[in-house]
Design a binder for these strands. Structure first.
Lengths: 351, 351
DNA sequence: ATTGGCACTCGGCCTAACAGAGTGCTAATA
DNA sequence: TATTAGCACTCTGTTAGGCCGAGTGCCAAT
């Protein structure tokens, strides 16, 4: 049997070549691609009839399909998958574009929340789709200072400052009123004990001391530890997800229907679901591409997600990427996401 | 001349009655209303032909118009205006609904940001349109405490706490490094001088002292005052605008076109424009209704905004309302907005 | 002032006809 | 054996015509 025999279940090189051409064309025009068009598109000098034979094979293998008898072919999900995994040729960004991204991200002035927002906007601006940046594992932070202020009605305002300069504050409800002196005493104790320690360590120490402290410490100290535990926990739990350029997706509404778009937007404002979705890619290396239908998520039908994790000081802390229609220009989007993740990592590292 | 003569430029009572019936019908069905339908709708036992005469008059006066020759009539902007200003009969909410609103708003636990968010969601939920709540003039706040923490690179973290328990923090860039002792000294001075004072007074005092202080104070104190001024200003400038249920508007997309909707959404995420728009109604008394086309704002074509200001301790601090299609059920929306504003005021007062 | 009647108009829907694009298959070809 | 030309077929989208229903404006009658 000849190497390229069509009866092979393996996709022949030539078939792959045509699949690639078809998908690239379909991504450009958004319309089913016919044999005639494809014959002109590929360099090879072949007649439409030949192409038709190959297309029939591809269809049999489930890589393309026709919407109806006399339309051209459209890639299927598995077709896209093959394209993404082994066929596409990413275009490198030129230096000018890279510089533009770097400059934009520098603008934020190192303020982490600002920078993440910039990154998200940048992604959406460059790709004309929705940009998203999550920050899940917070930068390893160190305890710097804690303060308690008495409010009325058995409430205490706790303020926690990290070495990075982040401020967390929260109102705690206590079982009795504390006066300022008591609270100051508690804060002093905590500040002396924990200043400079890693937040994770602080949490453990607090728990530990809380366990074997009943007899050694007085009531106030026990309370202080409880409160410290509460706010330290709260400061860790904070998860972030910045989405920009949602409305860019409206231009693809003709494809996906309005109802779908609405659900997607609702998910964006809710954020939790998106966050959960992207967290799957936290531990992945480099750019990951994810076609909506591949997850059970009804939400993302017709969409693809291109993501890459980013780091702060060598440690992955979040994921960034874009969400757009499955018919997106992967060859361009991939390097954009890749580079943005790298530059973001670099910008955040400095600090 | 008879009292109700049609040749009067004043709209006769009967004509007004028909206008009202027409608009109410149009609001229900969304389709041009013909003379036959209208004849049945109104209690009066009149033939379609008579109605047609009246409609012709209304059309001449610019209160209604027909999309084309053989369609019914549709209210014009001025028609809506007359309806809103003098024709509509607001339906009072029953106690059950009022209680539901009160309960929802109580849930936030008095945390002001939480409550505003609830209010916005509530408005959008009840009306099936977009809810919006702005907070522009902050509750009169009193200075409680300020702290400065040294960061690296000539940066200082300033934390300002108000009597209400709100925490504002900001990173200040200074012209030289300060050590902790210097900053503590400065903070102590400020805390002693200003604790309990109204924030507005603090701002003035700071400015004043800054002016005539050059000789009396040392460098550190001058700096402290400068920094205090910066953060006090920043804490005032913070404006808020919570929008919920944007996506409800997508159901009216068939009417307004997709492009319009997109611009509207972009304005929502930008927020500034919306904020500016609603601030016009800060000083108005009670419910205000605003038809999109009446302002030059291209954005709001086809939309109406129903707003009411709300207070904290008798003082107006913000505006709340809903944004929806001009064809909205005013007779129901108005009392909802009205009551929500009142309840919100009551809930915020407690604290 | 109101009404019935009548001619007229216009959008929406259905149908038929047609052009265009593309396919699958078969037979010829290199 | 792989490729090609040719042909019949299928399906979509558009266009034109016809008809129905809803509604109007106007006139004459009440």
């Amino acid at each position: 049997m000849a190497k390229n025999s069509f009866s092979d279940t393996v996709v022949s090189d030539r078939a792959q070549h045509f699949l690639k051409a078809l998908i690239e064309r379909y991504i450009r025009d958004g319309q089913p691609v016919g044999s005639r068009t494809l014959a002109k598109d590929t360099g090879l000098d072949l007649s439409p009839a030949t192409i038709r034979n190959v297309m029939a094979d591809l269809e049999e293998m489930g890589l393309v399909s026709s919407p109806h008898t006399s339309a051209g072919r459209v890639p299927t999900i598995t077709g896209y998958r093959m394209f993404i995994d082994s066929l596409l040729t990413v275009q490198n960004l030129n230096n000018q574009e890279v510089e533009k991204i770097r400059k934009e991200l520098m603008l934020g002035g190192g303020e982490s929340a600002e920078v993440l927002k910039s990154a998200s906007q940048l992604l959406s601006g460059v790709t004309h789709m929705a940009g998203v940046v999550t920050l899940t594992r917070r930068d390893k932070t160190s305890f710097r200072q804690i303060e308690f202020l008495p409010l009325s009605d058995r409430r205490v305002l706790a303020i926690l400052v990290t070495e990075g300069g982040e401020v967390h504050n929260r109102i705690l409800h206590t079982h009795r009123d504390f006066n300022r002196a008591e609270l100051d005493q508690a804060a002093n104790f905590l500040n002396k004990s924990f200043a400079g320690f890693d937040m994770e360590v602080v949490r453990q120490r607090v728990l530990q001391q809380l366990n074997d402290a009943r007899e050694h410490f007085d009531q106030v100290m026990t309370n202080a530890l409880t409160m410290a535990g509460e706010i330290v926990n709260a400061s860790e739990a904070k998860e972030d997800c910045v989405i920009a350029g949602q409305t860019n997706l409206m231009e693809f509404a003709e494809l996906s229907g309005l109802e779908q778009l609405r659900k997607l937007f609702d998910a964006f404002t809710e954020k939790r679901e998106i966050l959960h979705l992207l967290d799957q890619f936290l531990d992945a290396e480099g750019v990951q591409i994810f076609i909506g239908e591949e997850s059970g998520y009804q939400l993302l039908n017709g969409c693809s997600v291109v993501t890459a994790p980013y780091q702060v000081n060598e440690e992955v802390v979040g994921v960034l990427g874009v969400i757009g229609p499955t018919r997106m220009d992967y060859e361009r989007v991939i390097p954009v996401v890749d580079i943005t993740a790298k530059i973001l990592s670099a910008v955040l590292k400095k600090h």
